[in-house]
């Protein structure tokens, strides 16, 4: 066979799929954007040096944080030292600690009736009660649900979706759905009457109203925390359970000795997130009960809203002082959680 007769084999024409085309397009856009960023970043890097380029990259996020979080927060603190009903800070007289003094002007801090700003303290104690029972109940139920959903049961995916579904609903929708169920002429009362029983006026009895507010918020949020705990459970190595099984440990011993300690970091995250969310409770309850009956379901955020906006006197300074106090409580709770979390990491 002569050398000339050996020809390079012709390759079949390359076929580009739609997926590849889309991929290329995205790459080209990505490359273009990166090129643009590079074009912007290069002169800046020359100007400030490589060391300081990190500031350039965090700048956009810092700006957003500064404008939409830090500045309003500082403005709120300033408002808490001002009085009057004017909206703009320059029109508001400085009153020092007057708003704080008014909130803390109490004969007995544990008895709202003895406080000058009794509605703040009623809201405060209502919130404390809500946080303890809502968070306690929710963490416990989320934990139980996550443990059950972590086992191989029939229709596990379906149940996971069902438990997560309420999380997708807006708090206002959740409140309206339950209001229609629970009100005087709601579905539950219609059913009770059809069964020959008396109506239960859920929203006119303080105990019932508080119970339903807590129950509904657990129902609405539980799926989210269940999902986090489920992820935590799935990260625990299976061989640890096998080893415990071989050593003759019971299920409860395995749970106490393996699951709980290894799940503790996740549990702490769940705890801090749910506590923060519980302290901020407002929208769902506002639609569901309006804070009633009386002030049984008025929480601190509702007090702040009403003092600043719903009440015609518009006492922005007082409302800001109350929100600063709320912020301080949240800060203390978060620092406490971080401290506990750090200790648990060390252990």
């Amino acid at each position: 066979m002569s050398v000339q007769s050996r020809q390079t084999p012709t390759l079949p024409p390359q076929r580009i799929t739609i997926g590849e085309r889309i991929g290329r397009l995205f790459y080209q856009i990505y490359a273009g954007v990166m090129g643009l960023l590079g074009w912007l970043a290069e002169p800046i890097q020359r100007l400030v040096g490589v060391k300081h380029m990190a500031y350039f990259f965090v700048l956009p996020n810092l700006l957003v944080f500064g404008i939409f979080v830090l500045f309003p927060m500082l403005l709120n603190i300033y408002y808490s030292f001002t009085g009057g009903s004017a909206l703009f800070p320059q029109d508001r007289p400085f009153v020092g600690l007057q708003n704080y003094q008014r909130i803390f002007d109490c004969g007995n801090l544990l008895d709202p009736a003895t406080c000058r700003e009794d509605r703040f303290w009623r809201g405060f104690f209502n919130t404390a009660f809500y946080v303890v029972f809502q968070v306690g109940g929710m963490v416990l139920l989320s934990m139980l649900t996550a443990v059950v959903l972590n086992r191989s049961l029939l229709g596990r995916g379906f149940f996971r979706s069902i438990f997560f579904y309420p999380v997708l609903l807006s708090p206002v929708v959740v409140a309206l759905i339950w209001k229609w169920l629970l009100q005087r002429d709601g579905l539950i009362n219609a059913w009770l009457v059809s069964m020959g029983m008396e109506r239960i006026l859920f929203f006119l009895n303080a105990n019932w109203a508080v119970f339903w507010v807590i129950f509904i918020s657990i129902w609405a949020q539980m799926g989210f925390y269940t999902l986090i705990l489920l992820a935590g459970l799935q990260s625990i190595p299976k061989d640890m359970y096998e080893a415990a099984d071989m050593d003759g440990a019971s299920r409860w011993q395995s749970f106490r000795g393996i699951t709980l300690p290894l799940l503790m970091p996740t549990l702490l995250v769940v705890l801090v997130l749910s506590v923060i969310r519980a302290v901020q409770v407002f929208d769902q309850v506002w639609v569901l009960t309006g804070g009633g009956p009386g002030t049984a379901t008025v929480y601190v955020v509702q007090y702040i809203y009403e003092t600043a906006f719903a009440n015609q006197t518009r006492q922005y300074g007082l409302a800001s002082a109350a929100s600063v106090i709320l912020g301080m409580i949240l800060l203390v709770l978060t620092l406490f959680q971080l401290r506990v979390g750090r200790k648990s990491d060390i252990a």
Binding site: R184, L201, F203, L204, T289, G290, G291, G292, P293, G294, T295, T297, V298, Q302, E306, A310, N311
Partner: peptide
């Protein structure tokens, strides 16, 4: 009728 006054707060 209790719902109107008792069943609400603040509005």
């Amino acid at each position: 009728y209790p719902d109107t006054w008792i069943g609400s707060a603040g509005s």
